[in-house]
Nucleic acid binder design. Structure first.
Lengths: 112, 112
DNA sequence: TTTGCATACCTAAAATTCTTAGGTATATTT
DNA sequence: AAATATACCTAAGAATTTTAGGTATGCAAA
């Protein structure tokens, strides 16, 4: 499991990308989805996830829709237009980050 | 310039890797080196760098050697045995992180 | 049937890491 | 002479995450 400090700062990027692809998701679903597709290597803790979702909503990147499933609430999140733009930006930024890190971390003596 | 929150948590990884490759470096040199090899995309601020170097020393991952250049001090950092192991671990962790992020961020519908 | 686990939301204190914004001083370039 | 570069440092605050809870429903196994 990847419970190290490297995942810091990636949470918004992940959420926006998943919402862009799945149209709408609820919090718990996001945690399970990430766990599943990362093959258990990345675990989103709820203590980090929910405050981040609330922040994204407050900033107008996502909107919510509450649905009752039996007696239990589900709060679906979906991207706003602003959120869709933010997703594109975040993905590009992440790619830049990876490129920069590659330059820094690649072995100096590349004989290959 | 990559001044976003993605770089959080990568500082130790970067420092350890550079010291593993260059044998010894001083703080200011590290900032310039990173700026140079990342083509200006990554800037290490001194406010983050120096406390991290001090922490690495406190934790026994690096040792220091002070040299006077004229009237000015230079504090060279080099890896301890523990620091060398940590470097290997950090690089592996980073690779895992990249792999997990790739699984999460890659487009769902890959027709390529 | 009741115990436990999964589902589903949430918050708050503390820890961690970084940014911002300084301070000090020497060396070099314009 | 003034500005920029070199070279070290710290501290307050911001931002994000971890840790450690709380509440409640649904379901399956003992």
């Amino acid at each position: 499991m990847l419970s190290n400090e490297l995942t810091k700062g990636t949470l918004q990027t992940i959420i926006l990308k998943l919402l862009a692809e799945e149209q709408k998701m609820y919090g718990y679903e996001i945690t399970q989805h990430v766990k599943s597709i990362s093959e258990g290597k990345m675990i989103l803790t709820e203590g980090a996830l929910y405050p981040t979702l609330h922040k994204l909503e407050k900033n107008g990147l996502v909107r919510t829709q509450q649905v009752m499933i039996g007696k239990r609430m589900r709060k679906y999140y979906s991207l706003t237009a602003k959120g869709k733009k933010a997703n594109v930006n975040k993905l590009a930024e992440f790619q830049e980050f990876i490129n920069a890190m590659h330059l820094i971390l690649k072995p100096k003596t590349t004989t290959s």
